[in-house]
Amino acid sequence: MSKYKIVKLDGGHAFSLEGRAMNVSNEPMDHVTFIDQYEIQTADLSDFNVLVVTDFIDQEHLYKHKEVIESFLNDGKIVVVNTHMFRPWIPGVGLFMPKEIRKHSDYVMEAAHNNTFYRGVDMQELTYRKGVSGFYARGSHPVVNKNAEIVLQFTDGTPIVFIDRDSTKGTVIAGACRDFFTYATGQNSTQLIAPQFLAFLDEELTRLQGVQA
Score class of each variant (00 low, 15 high):
residue 114 N to S: 14
residue 114 N to Y: 06
residue 91 P to D: 07
residue 150 I to S: 05
residue 141 H to N: 12
residue 104 H to V: 11
residue 121 V to H: 08
residue 119 R to E: 14
residue 116 T to M: 07
residue 158 T to S: 12
residue 158 T to Q: 11
residue 130 K to L: 12
residue 114 N to E: 15
residue 89 W to V: 02
residue 120 G to C: 09
residue 121 V to L: 10
residue 115 N to H: 12
residue 104 H to D: 13
residue 92 G to W: 09
residue 141 H to A: 09
residue 106 D to Q: 07
residue 114 N to T: 11
residue 150 I to A: 07
residue 125 E to I: 04
residue 135 F to Y: 14
residue 152 L to N: 02
residue 104 H to Q: 12
residue 119 R to D: 12
residue 126 L to A: 06
residue 103 K to H: 11
residue 135 F to C: 05
residue 157 G to S: 10
residue 135 F to P: 00
residue 111 A to L: 03
residue 91 P to Y: 08
residue 107 Y to G: 00
residue 100 E to K: 14
residue 118 Y to N: 01
residue 93 V to H: 09
residue 117 F to L: 05
residue 124 Q to H: 12
residue 146 K to G: 03
residue 154 F to I: 03
residue 147 N to Q: 13
residue 137 A to S: 15
residue 103 K to D: 10
residue 90 I to C: 07
residue 109 M to I: 11
residue 161 V to I: 15
residue 140 S to E: 07
residue 98 P to K: 11
residue 139 G to L: 02
residue 132 V to C: 05
residue 91 P to L: 05
residue 133 S to W: 11
residue 127 T to L: 06
residue 152 L to T: 02
residue 136 Y to W: 15
residue 125 E to R: 08
residue 123 M to R: 06
residue 142 P to L: 09
residue 118 Y to M: 10
residue 96 F to N: 04
residue 123 M to I: 06
residue 153 Q to Y: 04
residue 132 V to M: 12
residue 156 D to V: 04
residue 144 V to C: 10
residue 147 N to P: 00
residue 124 Q to P: 00
